[in-house]
Amino acid sequence: MLIINCPWCGARPEIEFRYGGEAHVARPADPAAMSDQEWADFLYNRTNPKGLHAERWRHIHGCGRYFNAVRDTVSDFFVTTYKAGEPRPDIGESGQ
């Protein structure tokens, strides 16, 4: 079971959290202005990288906050976590 470092509460076991999909996929300001293809990209297409992945987690059985994490999808280890709204830390693309 993973240990996840909630930026508000600190390190807690994985069972307190719920995964929230890829991070930094902002809802478009004016959806009506988008083409079907652009809207489909926003809705469905995700990067699914092998290596570092910025993703959302929610401390659902804790503070209830959404936050972001960078996790290595190869090793399943977290590199860092940070509050929602903060930019993705500059730590490259690869986890190796």
Binding site: A26, R27, R58, G64, Y66, A84
Partner: peptide, 13 residues
């Protein structure tokens, strides 16, 4: 509730 919290916290803070 989770759906509402998601939008409130992350899209429209």
């Amino acid at each position: 509730l989770a759906h509402m919290e998601d939008y409130l916290q992350t899209e429209w803070p």
